[in-house]
């Protein structure tokens, strides 16, 4: 039997609160290299929750996400340097980046899958060029230090709370008509248009929202890390963000968390020598794409369903695996 919606939503909310608490404890308690790993996982989870909207629900592989991430980090640092209050600077940084997201979306939401990937990849490349070349504003290839705008405790609390609130927002959005529309676009965009979904507008909104998540994560990253440099916002980072969502399970609530943990874990924790961890990630990503299109979470959910109800499943489900549209398991 399925639990009533109220109970389910309550359980998810409680889980997310618990997640935020755990995130805070880890952020505050773990030091050194491992502390850096925790920070990155938390920051990526916040950023990727946005990517999970446009790419997970909508099926649009955005490679511009790291550019939004950079936008939040650099712009907030810039406003802070000018001596503006941090809260205002952060809000402006997120707002301006979302404006940038709007422009990117206006141009590229007309394109489909592969063109979209190419176009958004270009945005990342150009932002990287700006970061390395506009030395007056960005500090150039070596980056620049960022002053503490929020107190350290405030930054930690904001980081931890953003994880839970971000995922909570995703959970709600995925259950509204907006989520259904995005999923319809992922399944068949032409058909979606022909049942009345204003697809261009829906994609636009998803892209702008997603850029907001990226920018906010960037603001917090710059605050905690204290230094920002172009090397943190490369091409490769934008692939890895895509990889994280794909590995976690596109469109699933916890995909940003699981995906970030896998990707960051591989690149930061396991020291296999230069390149090797990324080779392993590449192989893993291709294997998951080929064999388990639902990612780690999708695979687990399918396994759980198969274990739970073997007899009726054999009748109705055919050889083609049926995609589950619930965002959370």
């Amino acid at each position: 039997m399925r639990a009533s919606p109220l109970v389910r939503h309550g359980a998810v909310a409680a889980g997310l609160v618990a997640l935020s608490v755990v995130a805070y404890l880890l952020l505050a308690g773990v030091q050194g290299d491992r502390g850096q790993v925790v920070l990155l996982v938390v920051v990526w989870t916040i950023a990727l929750t946005g990517l999970n909207l446009i790419m997970g629900l909508g099926g649009y592989p955005s490679l511009a996400h790291v550019a939004f991430f950079a936008g939040g980090a650099y712009l907030s640092a810039y406003f802070l340097e000018r001596g503006w209050p941090m809260a205002l600077g952060a809000a402006l940084a997120v707002g301006l980046t979302m404006l940038g997201g709007l422009v990117v979306a206006l141009v590229f939401s007309r394109t489909r899958g592969q063109y979209f990937a190419i176009g958004t990849m270009f945005c990342t490349a150009v932002v990287y060029l700006v970061l390395t070349n506009a030395t007056g504003f960005t500090g150039g290839p070596n980056g620049k230090p960022v002053d503490l705008g929020f107190s350290m405790t405030a930054t930690l609390v904001l980081l931890a709370a953003s994880v839970g609130l971000g995922l909570g927002a995703f959970y709600v959005l995925a259950r509204t008509r907006f989520g259904d529309r995005l999923r319809a676009i992922r399944e068949d965009e032409d058909l979606a248009r022909h049942v009345g979904v204003p697809t261009a507008r829906v994609k636009l909104v998803a892209m702008v929202l997603s850029s907001g998540f990226g920018a906010w994560a960037g603001v917090l990253f710059a605050q905690y890390n204290g230094v920002i440099a172009p090397s943190q916002f490369t091409f490769v980072q934008s692939f890895l963000m895509l990889v994280a969502i794909g590995l976690g399970g596109a469109g699933r609530l916890l995909a940003p968390l699981v995906g970030s943990a896998i990707v960051i874990g591989f690149t930061q924790l396991i020291k296999l020598g230069p390149g090797v961890s990324q080779i392993v990630l590449g192989v893993l990503f291709i294997l998951v794409t080929l064999l388990v299109p639902g990612g780690v979470l999708g695979g687990l959910a399918q396994l759980a369903r198969r274990l739970r109800r073997t007899p009726p499943a054999a009748e109705t489900e055919r050889s083609t695996p049926v995609r589950v549209k619930e965002a959370a398991s």
Binding site: R177, D180, R181, R183, A184, E187, D188, D190, L191, A192, H194, V195, G196, V197, V322, R323, V324, K325
Partner: peptide, 25 residues
């Protein structure tokens, strides 16, 4: 409203889910 020459539906959705989407639009 139209249909297509080739069968097009929203993948693994149930018919009721698909109808709900269309109805809400």
């Amino acid at each position: 409203a139209r249909t297509f020459q080739t069968t097009r539906l929203f993948g693994g959705w149930t018919l009721r889910e698909a109808l709900r989407l269309a109805r809400r639009e």
